[in-house]
């Protein structure tokens, strides 16, 4: 009897070994694999959502206290800065109105379509959970497929692009943040038009890689989504280029590490690649077929 009750003896030790091996096997299966969400993951996310939503109420209260203290401390400086900004924006607004009129006239003459494809419809959502782990950076939203949210939809805050939806259940959606290790989006510099891939690398400043023209990227450039990947519309505000260590360039995200509460999902439909048997309208007109 005493032998059977030995601490960590016999069956327990064997079971412990089995669970360690099983966990290690699960981990090794994900090495180098593409991130895919399973039905079980979505179900767990749905189960956890009510608890996290309930927990968010006292947490937001605590956050409110800290943010109030900070806001009061900087209120005078903020007010001064905002007044300067308003004066500058008034001048810019006047210039913008003139330019908009001019561009509209040119568009009418040339007959070009310059729409940015950013959907006008916005699905408002609340970030009920935020995983900021040593390897994972994601958000849990309180909207899902019932609200027309789809995998791949961009998620924005008032400051700029936050990430895109990687997993959607009926009432919840998980968002992969731009700084997550698995995040890769096509971006462009507003100043030069040069393109690159913004790759999250587990730091607050994701790096620019696969730059089309390295010389056309400089610190301070405003970065927007290029739409080249077909997953995100062109023109979403991403951030500004900063010099990184070892001569590389990184992007200070507009959405940053600021506290996220309300965000919106843009129900953007990704561009479908034409299938092999499908002819484009240009090809059809070339061979004389009516579309």
């Amino acid at each position: 009897m005493r032998g059977r009750e030995r601490p960590n003896g016999g069956i327990t030790r064997f079971a412990l070994l089995v669970t360690i091996l099983l966990s290690s096997l699960l981990i090794s299966l994900q090495r180098g694999a593409e991130r895919q969400s399973s039905f079980l993951e979505t179900s767990t996310q749905e189960t956890v959502a009510p608890l996290v939503t309930a927990l968010a109420v006292p947490l937001r209260y605590v956050e409110g206290i800290f943010s109030d203290i900070k806001d009061r401390r900087t209120a005078f400086a903020d007010n001064k800065e905002l007044l300067n900004e308003v004066a500058m924006l008034r001048e810019r607004q006047a210039r913008y109105d003139n330019l908009a009129m001019k561009v509209a006239r040119y568009e009418a003459i040339l007959g070009v379509d310059t729409e940015t494809e950013i959907p006008l419809r916005k699905i408002a959502a609340r970030a009920i959970g935020e995983t900021d782990g040593p390897f994972v950076r994601s958000l849990l939203l309180n909207v899902g497929t019932d609200d027309d949210v789809k995998i791949g939809n961009p998620v924005m805050s008032t400051n700029g692009l936050v990430g895109h939806v990687i997993n959607a259940g009926p009432r919840t959606a998980r968002v992969l943040r731009l700084s997550d290790l698995n995040s890769r989006i096509a971006v462009t510099s507003v100043r030069s038009g040069a393109t690159a891939i913004l790759a999250g690398d587990n730091t607050p400043l994701p790096k620019l890689s696969f730059m089309s023209q390295r010389e056309n990227w400089i610190a301070g450039d405003r970065v927007i989504s290029s739409g080249d990947d077909g997953f995100l519309p062109r023109g979403l505000q991403v951030g500004h280029v900063v010099n990184g260590e070892n001569g590389g360039l990184r992007v200070r995200l507009s959405s940053g590490s600021a506290q996220l509460d309300w965000v919106w999902v843009s129900p953007y439909h990704k561009i479908k690649a034409p299938s092999d048997g499908e002819l484009t309208s240009a090809q059809q007109s070339e061979i004389g077929e009516t579309p």
């Binding site: 601490p7 960590n8 412990l16 969400s37």
Partner: peptide
């Protein structure tokens, strides 16, 4: 699953911590 992390990572941490800390002792 809840955090969207590497599947098996938390279970490995939990199991090893529990196994090495041996609460019964």
């Amino acid at each position: 699953w809840a955090t969207g992390g590497v599947m098996g990572q938390s279970s490995l941490v939990f199991v090893l911590v529990w196994g090495l800390m041996r609460p019964e002792l």
